[in-house]
């Protein structure tokens, strides 16, 4: 593995693009996410980690609008989107790729991406969307597969499609839900390259990840969650040196360096 080792954040602290203030989500008697606050800065790659059941996916669903929070507020590019539905958040600049890929099965790869380009930003014509979709396929290495149906792709290609489709909505912030899951180490390394190129194109990335080397290679900053709350926040090395974080992971079977 070509470890990047110590990669201090190259990004200066610019504007806040995504800000969560005291987000909580209650399912019946279960408090899945509890008073979570954090800020993401422009051009930053932010990782959210934590043991299983820490509330990471619920948090992501709160950010993307699958759930409305029980309390707390969410600001996207300075705008309060707490009560906005998913499609409005998308228009406001939030993209999301799912952990389990969800291509539209009866569409070609190109049509899949066209949907994102067409509806993700207002005022896009069909012709423009189709062109932008072709451009994105070239950028994400799917050019040769444009006319295939999504189910004909390999898992890595499916993940590329998932990212390409989310990028087609021209997000300012991209949420990635364990995109490395199921990939072989070589493939994961490729996916890391893809995420970096996404950031280099000016998109801030927030991702959930289990695979610690990927977090180390990618993340400018890490938010650690445990039992629905934020446990620690800082660079990879700061949080992995934090005794509380180590304790939280030791309590699980995964361990910190799984």
């Amino acid at each position: 593995m070509t470890a990047v080792g110590v990669q201090p954040s190259a990004v200066g602290r610019g504007d806040v693009v995504l800000r969560a203030d005291g987000l909580s989500k209650r399912f019946g008697g279960l408090l899945a996410v509890q008073n979570v606050s954090f800020s993401q800065y422009d051009g930053e790659i932010l990782a959210v980690i934590g043991p299983n059941g820490a509330g990471k996916t619920t948090l992501l669903n709160l950010l993307s609008g699958v759930y409305r929070p029980s309390s707390g507020r969410l600001h996207l590019l300075g705008r309060d989107v707490t009560q906005e539905p998913m499609e409005a958040r998308c228009h406001a600049g939030l993209g999301r790729a799912f952990q389990i890929v969800r291509p539209f099965p009866e569409m070609t790869v190109h049509e899949n991406v066209t949907v994102g380009a067409l509806f993700g930003t207002r005022g896009t014509t069909l012709g423009q969307a189709r062109e932008r979709a072709y451009d994105l396929l070239e950028r994400t290495g799917l050019a040769a597969h444009a006319d295939k149906e999504a189910h004909e792709l390999t898992l890595l290609q499916d993940k590329r499609l998932e990212v390409a489709r989310a990028l087609a909505t021209q997000p300012r912030v991209l949420l990635l839900d364990e995109v490395m899951a199921g990939l072989r180490p070589g493939e994961a390394q490729e996916a890391v390259g893809l995420v970096r190129s996404v950031r280099d194109s000016g998109v801030s990335v927030l991702f959930i990840e289990h695979i610690m080397p990927v977090v180390r290679d990618l993340a400018d900053r890490v938010v650690v969650m445990d039992q629905g709350q934020v446990l620690a926040e800082g660079t990879y090395h700061e949080v992995t040196a934090n005794p509380q974080v180590v304790a939280a992971y030791l309590g699980t079977e995964e361990g910190l360096h799984a």
């Binding site: 993307s64 699958v66 539905p85 998913m86 499609e87 998308c90 228009h91 999301r96 799912f98 969800r102 539209f104 099965p105 009866e106 569409m107 049509e111 066209t114 949907v115 994102g116 067409l118 509806f119 993700g120 930003t121 069909l126 969307a129 489709r165 989310a166 087609a168 909505t169």
Partner: peptide, 21 residues
């Protein structure tokens, strides 16, 4: 664009919403 909206909703309603439909 209706064609793309309809097809997206039919093949994955939540995904369609995430993509801004």
């Amino acid at each position: 664009r209706l064609h793309h909206a309809f097809a997206a909703i039919r093949q994955g309603e939540e995904t369609a919403r995430v993509l801004g439909v």
